[in-house]
Design a protein around this nucleic acid. Structure first.
Lengths: 199, 199
DNA sequence: CAGGTATGTCTACGACTGTAGACCCGGATT
DNA sequence: AATCCGGGTCTACAGTCGTAGACATACCTG
């Protein structure tokens, strides 16, 4: 392997470009934080994957905490499941959830980032704010009826829980389960949470 | 504060008793791992809270990893919600979940331990085995009909997800939500997952 | 009272962490 | 071609981590 840089296919040390370098660091940070969590990912590790030194990270982002905040914000901005038709929302949510929590799937999701960083109180605070800023409001708008905010966050709870059990813990029954069965169950759950009146 | 020991009301250094000391360490470990997760809790911290030195922890448990394994096992053994009557299971699950995830509640739960340690792959492995050994089989037995294992783990998913969003992230809508409303929604969700046939 | 053993402590090591300050150098401008 | 500044690196520090090995002490047994 190359001794200095290994950020891309070419071993060229990349032309000096502040914006591009910053972007490379941020991308690398999202990957590292998603894989190892806030505490588990080191600044040196993030920097190396971006082809720079650790100090440059702090020069661009101030501190690890601020880097994390930007990484979370970017990760949560990614368009998850925003099906337009409210009637098809439960089915779309369930289908996407089953597909993306497959243990063999490519791992890169704001929910994984959340779950892997939940142990750190400061990281939890940052993520709560990011949820309120992006996902929460967006999902709440798709739900009709009273208590839409509460039900939106319950939907997020179910999504996060399934991601934990199926993708991170890799629990046996959920790992071996038939995707069609899972989809059916989860669609029913989502329908309950998306309907206007609980009665 | 005392400089040497602070494990109890008395400052007496506790009579030498291997079993009692081991128990004190294990109790302290459960508390620390539940509060800070596997990576966040240090061996010295666990030892200090038990009134011993760090090395004694390794002498009794071999390593931090083995200590964690015993702590997880003990925490998951605690009788959670095992209502006898299957018909009342959804309601009891929902009620207990709402009560115990209250942000002001006393924090000590296997689910908190799980969520706060999920970032570490080795810890995840240990917890998966513990789930299969205790909770999984117990809950599966309470469910009737086909795919009871799969549905049992989906119930665990929902519980874990709500615990994350409400207790750890302290999301605004779930924090401010009326407990009665929450109970109603979650009971409906649990009923879906506990019924024999999904259709 | 003497001794031995289980119980607990002390010191230390090597590795890793986030980050502060000094330093270097490529590349467009004048 | 000389200059200058933004983009990057190097060295280092103070701290924490898990744990290995040698050492001290309290308690039960004779």
């Amino acid at each position: 392997m190359s001794t200095l840089v290994d950020m891309s296919v070419t071993n060229q040390p990349r032309r000096r470009d502040a914006a591009a370098t910053r972007e490379a660091i941020l991308t690398s940070a999202i990957e590292a934080f998603t894989r190892a969590g806030y505490d588990g990912a080191g600044v040196r590790e993030v920097a190396a994957a971006a082809g720079v030194t650790a100090m440059l990270v702090n020069r661009y982002f101030g501190s690890k905490e601020q880097l994390f905040a930007e990484a979370v914000d970017r990760s949560f901005t990614a368009p998850t499941v925003v099906g337009a038709d409210p009637a098809e929302l439960p089915a779309k949510l369930a289908a996407a959830l089953v597909a993306r929590t497959d243990p063999a799937a490519g791992q890169l999701s704001p929910f994984l980032l959340m779950l892997r960083s939940a142990n750190n109180p400061r990281a939890a605070e940052i993520m709560r704010e990011a949820i309120g800023r992006h996902v929460g409001s967006r999902l709440t708008g798709l739900l009709t009826g009273p208590d839409s905010g509460e039900r939106a966050e319950l939907v997020l709870s179910v999504v996060a829980g399934v991601w934990l059990m199926r993708s991170i813990l890799a629990t046996p029954a959920l790992t071996a389960a038939d995707p069609g069965q899972l989809d059916e169950q989860l669609t029913a759950v989502m329908q309950v949470l998306c309907r206007p009146n609980p009665a």
